[in-house]
Design a protein around this nucleic acid. Structure first.
Lengths: 159, 159
DNA sequence: ATTGATATGTTATAACATTGCACATTACAA
DNA sequence: TTGTAATGTGCAATGTTATAACATATCAAT
């Protein structure tokens, strides 16, 4: 495993840790970390990439954990709602959160070659957009920041 | 007309100006500003809001300018490609550009109530995301910045 | 036992987008 | 001015993503 911002690492450990953290977080908030939800998060954690809902559904189906679209979408809603996963708007796809603990405004680097996703942070009312918002009385609740480009590996290949 | 960042203004004049500018720009670049393309831009310009492809298609169909999805998508591709319109990723929808002349990295305020869209600007390699990119050797080509929230009018209503 | 809250199952359909091919138009050089 | 390449359009079919609507299950609290 070696995606943008994720130098070679013990990936199975990384997955286990994240699942553990999710468990803890759900326990604290009295949320049900059900098999479907757990499995969807696990599938997302397999790769530091964005996966489409129907791809996830296919995996889910293999385990007999649901075969219809709503099953995935509900699980994804839950995960996104609780900050355990994020939606990548420009791909209509989903990716596991790399630091699900604290509340944050995520920003992403998305490789158009391999769909690898790296997560960074931003602020809600930063920069020119924040200024524009204040000027017009617009209240920002969420901000989507996604950079599209090429990761080092893909840049090499297409150069 | 009075959307975020667009205080009451002479909207028909605003539309006419934008169409004129688009014409000029296409002439300069030797691009064909065909009836379909012109009409799609005009439809987008009617409102400072994001419109879905199928909604636009319905309008187009009324004028006998195309009845199949590819007609709109091709026109939208053309407009987006040439900076005359933008795609709002979080809505899978499109909006006319308010300053199609210069090359720019657009950022948007999108009202979740009325879908009104205001356009601001940002920079490609700004802030923490730029830093993350430089650190990992990621080359940013395009950046999606979309703030979701409530415009003053909708905030009033839902308060 | 009954209720209420939450999660899931199931069918159907809405909404968004692309592919592939044939035909028309335009641009432009021979 | 005619041939030809490039570009744009029409049309049918299909693919992909997402939700509506309704039924059922599970389980804890009264």
């Amino acid at each position: 495993m070696n995606a943008i911002g994720f130098p070679t690492h013990d990936h199975s450990h990384c997955i286990a840790d994240a699942l553990k953290a999710a468990e803890t977080l759900c326990a604290q908030r009295k949320l049900q970390f059900t098999p479907v939800r757990r499995r969807v998060l696990e599938i997302l954690l397999q790769e530091h990439r964005a996966l489409g809902a129907y791809g996830i559904l296919a995996e889910l189906a293999k385990d007999g954990l649901g075969s219809q679209p709503p099953a995935v979408y509900r699980a994804l809603d839950f995960l996104v709602q609780n900050g355990l996963a994020h939606r990548i708007e420009q791909l209509n796809a989903y990716t596991a959160c790399v630091h699900a603990d604290r509340d944050h405004a995520p920003a992403f680097l998305v490789c158009r070659g391999c769909k690898a996703v790296a997560e960074a942070e931003t602020e809600l009312n930063q920069g020119r957009l924040g200024i524009a918002a204040r000027h017009s009385g617009f209240v920002i609740e969420r901000i989507v920041v996604e950079a599209e480009g090429l990761c080092p590996a893909c840049a090499e290949g297409s150069a």
